[in-house]
């Protein structure tokens, strides 16, 4: 399957390990990634909340470049990119006057026009159902040796479900399906569908930490060896800000956090240099020891 690949800001820089492991994994899963060179940030919800019309144009431009590459699917690896692109796409596809204005503006600056022919799909959705799931089961034969994994969905891959629509927002199952296919055991806990606090972690740190502690604490109580998330923003929050929680509460969590592509990557036998666990703040050592890697 040939798909346009939109990695977004974090995977380009601070979460490079997500991009590297995704690129290493893709061919094994039958995904041909067409990298988009001329694209920009999706705005992360911030541009929508500051200059909504500019937000629409930036996202239309990303979709237009995917369309110009002859791709009908745009692959995302971040919850926030997924929602921003799907929301803009939905508005543009359903509103002809808007589509015409945006397309004309794109042409005026020298970008390709956008006719509305691209579907935005998160990596998780492609590997948790249909053919992708069958491929995943073949690839993940190295297994996770029954490792207990806490799935953490985050918000913008579940809600608003009218724009996302793959998982049931209150009863999601895709991450559990992937964990099972990789030979891990998914542990259950209520906060797996709640917010990690990242969007307000700089402007309202205290509130964000009050949100962040819930999934980490609950995953620990549920006996998880590690957590996995499909979103690099959740990853940054869970992994890097965990030390702030430890300072605040005087407790130690030491909960390793995996990107989805790393979880599948371990099960698919990717090498150290493709997984790049050293780029995590919380050490992955206990997990790797259990796996005997």
């Amino acid at each position: 399957m040939r798909v346009a690949y939109y990695k977004g800001c974090l995977a380009s820089l601070s979460a490079k390990e997500l991009d590297i492991s995704t690129q290493a994994l893709a061919p094994k899963l039958g995904l041909e990634l067409v990298e988009l060179e001329s694209v920009t940030c999706c705005g992360a919800g911030d541009i929508q909340q500051a200059e909504p019309d500019y937000y629409l144009h930036l996202n239309a431009r990303i979709l237009a470049y995917a369309e110009a590459q002859g791709c009908d699917t745009l692959l995302t690896i971040c919850n926030v990119c997924t929602l921003n692109l799907r929301q803009a796409n939905f508005q543009i596809q359903k509103d002809e006057a808007l589509r015409e204005r945006v397309s004309a503006n794109l042409s005026a600056v020298g970008a390709p026009p956008y006719s509305g022919g691209v579907d935005v799909q998160h990596f998780l959705w492609l590997i948790a159902q249909g053919d992708g799931y069958e491929k995943l089961k073949e690839v993940a034969h190295h297994g996770l040796k029954g490792l207990k994994i806490a799935p953490f969905y985050g918000c913008q891959i579940l809600r608003p479900s009218k724009l996302l629509g793959v998982d049931d927002p209150d009863r999601p199952h895709t991450l559990e399906a992937v964990i099972a296919a990789c030979g891990g055991e998914a542990v259950d806990y209520p906060a797996k569908v709640k917010c990690c606090g990242f969007p307000i972690i700089q402007a309202r740190e205290e509130m964000a930490l009050a949100e962040l502690i819930q999934p980490i604490e609950q995953a620990m109580e549920a006996g998880a060896d590690a957590m996995v998330t499909p979103c690099p923003l959740c990853h940054l929050s869970l992994d890097a800000w965990q030390q702030k929680l430890e300072k605040q509460t005087g407790r130690s969590f030491d909960m390793p956090i995996l990107h989805l592509s790393q979880l599948v990557g371990v099960a698919a036998g990717l090498s150290d240099s493709e997984l790049k666990f050293k780029r995590h703040v919380v050490s992955m050592k206990p997990v790797l020891e259990k796996l005997d890697v």
């Binding site: 929508q48 019309d53 508005q91």
Partner: peptide, 17 residues
């Protein structure tokens, strides 16, 4: 500003899984 978010919104419906 606000109209940037309103555009196309009337078309919003539920995407069926």
């Amino acid at each position: 500003g606000a109209q940037g978010i309103v555009q196309g919104e009337r078309a919003l419906g539920r995407i069926e899984p």
